[in-house]
């Protein structure tokens, strides 16, 4: 039991929360970076290797395309269906191989990325599928290569939607990042477990909830802002939920 009236309590709380927030942002930030770098190409390839896609015939063979598509699709489904807590434990040997240890915030980045990549890849896939096939045809008629189609048409046209998908992905990374606290991954989840749960500190628990909430809201607002900026179509904001929109408006009017 922690006594909030003990000398140095508030200073200690502040230190603990600062460290926890720092670790969470570090884990989430790096995991997000890895997720985008790996997930974006997977999403692009998932769409491309479908029948009629840009990578329909890699190395001149439709069979190769089908195999790539099926394998990626399977991995993505697998990654999305295994509960995180199990995935985290199951990945320990792999984490140790990559980072050298499976304890701490840096080690937590591995399972966080592994769980977020399939999630984001699916988001990218859905976003790119929404791009009008006529645009690809237009690029083809101008003599575009497959790389041109991806880099000049598919990704830029889907960007607004991809950013919204990314914001959903970050939210779930933050969500999972709290869970790594249970296996000594550090971060706000760790604070909540060690102080809030094990030592019954309601103040710590409340503070963690508020900080997490604020982080998620800020990220959502930023994502919505950029999604809007890149949405040049007249109506494409339907995917942003009402909460985000009102939040975005209140931030903008204050600014």
């Amino acid at each position: 039991m922690i006594d909030p009236n003990a000398p140095g309590f508030w200073e200690g709380l502040f230190q603990v929360l600062l460290a926890g927030t720092g670790q969470t942002l570090y884990m989430v930030g790096v995991a997000l970076l890895v997720t985008v770098i790996v997930g974006l190409p997977i999403g692009v390839i998932l769409v491309g290797t479908e029948a009629g896609g840009v990578f329909e015939r890699p190395f001149g063979s439709r069979a190769v395309g089908v195999v790539i598509n099926r394998v990626l699709d399977f991995i993505v489904n697998l990654g999305r269906s295994v509960p995180f807590i199990i995935l985290m434990v199951a990945l320990i040997p792999f984490t140790r191989l990559v980072v050298g240890t499976f304890i701490g915030s840096t080690a937590a980045i591995v399972p966080l990325s592994v769980v977020a990549i399939p999630f984001f890849a699916r988001m990218v896939e859905i976003s790119i599928k929404e791009v009008d096939s006529g645009l690809i045809e237009a690029a083809d008629s101008l003599g575009a290569t497959r790389w041109h189609v991806v880099s000049k048409v598919q990704v830029p046209e889907a960007l607004s939607s991809i950013i919204l998908g990314l914001s959903t992905t970050v939210t779930s990374i933050i969500n999972f990042s709290a869970m790594v606290g249970t296996v000594a991954g550090g971060g706000l989840g760790d604070v909540a477990i060690r102080y809030g749960y094990q030592r019954y500190s309601v103040i710590h628990m409340t503070a963690v909830i508020i900080i997490t909430f604020v982080i998620v809201m800020i990220l959502q607002a930023v994502a919505t802002y950029f999604a809007r900026r890149f949405a040049r179509r007249s109506v494409d904001i339907s995917r942003v939920d009402a909460t985000n929109r009102s939040l975005f408006r209140s931030i903008r009017t204050r600014a």
Binding site: G134, A138, S141, L142, E157, R233
Partner: peptide, 18 residues
Amino acid sequence: AARRSIGMIFQHFNLLSS
């Protein structure tokens, strides 16, 4: 390369919105 000397226009314009 040959397609670059064949322009094409479409019913629904097919312009990049971005």
